[in-house]
């Protein structure tokens, strides 16, 4: 039985999911959580991920409060890494973890 993770989505994506803001998704790693999320809500794919399969430029994803862009390939937090790639997607997840998507809002 793989752990269940709570995935939260921003309100702007309500039209895409028909109003769903929170889902319980099972998986052993962030990658499996993302795959499970897109299996449940395939229409989210072009909004969260680009054609290269990476997070869109201004989409933020936090695992238990840590920006997934800052996770190294080992899954440990690495504040020096700010790439948009998939480093850190093999980070293991545990029952009750949270994955939060939100938009990077900048400017005034």
């Amino acid at each position: 039985m793989k752990p269940s993770v709570t995935v939260s989505l921003p309100s702007l994506l309500e039209p895409v999911t028909g109003g769903v803001r929170e889902l319980a998704v099972s998986g052993g790693s962030l990658r499996e959580i993302f795959d499970g999320l897109l299996e449940r809500e395939p229409r989210l794919r072009p909004h969260l991920f680009n054609e290269a399969g990476e997070l869109r430029r201004h989409v933020l994803c936090f695992h238990n409060g840590t920006n997934t862009r800052w996770l190294g390939s080992s899954g440990r937090e690495n504040a020096g890494s700010r790439g948009g790639g998939r480093d850190g997607w093999d980070t293991p997840v545990a029952e009750g973890d949270t994955v939060l998507f939100m938009q990077a809002v900048s400017g005034g």
Binding site: L12, L13, L48, A104
Partner: peptide, 12 residues
């Protein structure tokens, strides 16, 4: 057709 600078376009 809709679009977002953050989330990209879509057709509804």
């Amino acid at each position: 057709a809709v679009a977002s600078e953050i989330y990209g376009p879509a057709i509804f």
